[in-house]
Nucleic acid binder design. Sequence first.
DNA 1: CTGAATTTTCAATAATTATTGAAAATTCAG
DNA 2: CTGAATTTTCAATAATTATTGAAAATTCAG
Lengths: 168, 168
Amino acid sequence: MDLQASKQKFIDTWGALGSEWGINKSVAQVQALLLVSDNPLSTDEIMEMLTISRGNANMSLRQLLDYGIIYKKVIAGDRKEYFVAEKDIWKWALKIVLMRKQKEIDPVINVLRELEADTKKDRTPEGKEFYKTVSEIQQFSEQLSLLADKVCNSNRGELLLKLLKVIM
Amino acid sequence: MDLQASKQKFIDTWGALGSEWGINKSVAQVQALLLVSDNPLSTDEIMEMLTISRGNANMSLRQLLDYGIIYKKVIAGDRKEYFVAEKDIWKWALKIVLMRKQKEIDPVINVLRELEADTKKDRTPEGKEFYKTVSEIQQFSEQLSLLADKVCNSNRGELLLKLLKVIM
DNA sequence: CTGAATTTTCAATAATTATTGAAAATTCAG
DNA sequence: CTGAATTTTCAATAATTATTGAAAATTCAG
C-alpha cells in the first residue's frame, strides 16, 4: 500500500470512528486530512481531496475552528484561507473532551440537579427510590465532569500520565 | 412537578443524551425507564410506557441485555419475561465504556498499527511525517484503551476514586 | 403433542441527519 | 469605490438510521 492509500485509509477510518461517536463524518475526515497533510490546505483543495461540496467543506472547517482543533493560516499573496490541524494530540483530544462535556454533559447534570431538588421532599417509597437513583447518577456525573476539567486544565495532561503510573 | 413527570423528564433527558453519543434513543430510554421503575417490567409495559412498538422494545431490551446492564427477572406463574436494570452506576457505566472501547476503539487501534507498520520504512519526508502522526495517535489511543481496561477490571472502580484524590 | 401466548425477525416506512449547490453576502486588490 | 474572488447561508434533496407492525418462530401450560 502506498502512502497515498495509507492516508486515505486513515481518513476513512477516522470518519467512521467519528460517526459512531456522534461526530459528523465530514468533520472528522477534514480533521484527519489536515492531520496528515504536510502543508496548509485551502477549502478548494479539501473539497477536491475528500470529494465533498463547498458548503460541506466550509461548515466542517468552521466547526473544527470552533472546537479549536484546527487553525487558519495566511499565505502571503493569496487571498484564499488556508487551514492546518493542531498536531499535538493531547491538545486537541482534550479540547474535544472539554467541549463535548460542556455542551452535552453539563446540561444533563443540571437537569439531574433539578430532578433531585424536585423530589427531595417526596416521602413516598417510590419518591425516595427515584431520588436515590437520580442522586447517584448526578453525583457520579459531577465527579466525572470535575475530573475532566482538572485533567484538561492541567498543562498537557501531565497529571494524567502520572495517574497512569499510579494505576498500572 | 409530580413524580411521574419527573420520571418522564429523566427518561427523555437520558434518551437525548444517548442520541448525542451514538446510542439509540429508544435503547437509552428503556434503560432509563427500568432505572427508575420500582418493579420489573414486561415488554408490554415498556411498550406502553414509552409508546414504542413491540419490535423496537424487543430490540432495545436485547441490546441492553447484551451490554449486560439490564437483567431478566422471572416472575412465578407468569409466562412473560420481566426486566430490571442494574442499579449500581459504577457497574453499568464501566460496562458501557468497556463495550464501546472493544467494539469501536480497539478496531481503530488495529488499523492504526497496520498503517504504522505499512509506513515505517518510508524514507520520504512526507512518509516520515505521516508515520509520526499515526504513531502518536496510535500510542495515545492504546494508553487510553489500557487505562480503560485497568479501571474497568478493578472492582467497582475504587482505583478511580483513589485517582480522583491524587488529581484534585 | 397442541395451540395459545410470547418473542423474534425483517421488509416497508418514517424520521432524522448530512450534503449539495446555487444564490446571497462579504472581502479586498486595484 | 468597483467588481472579481472568496466565503457563507440555506432550501432542496439525498443518505442514513430508527421504527413499525405483521408474519414467522419459539415456548410452554395443559
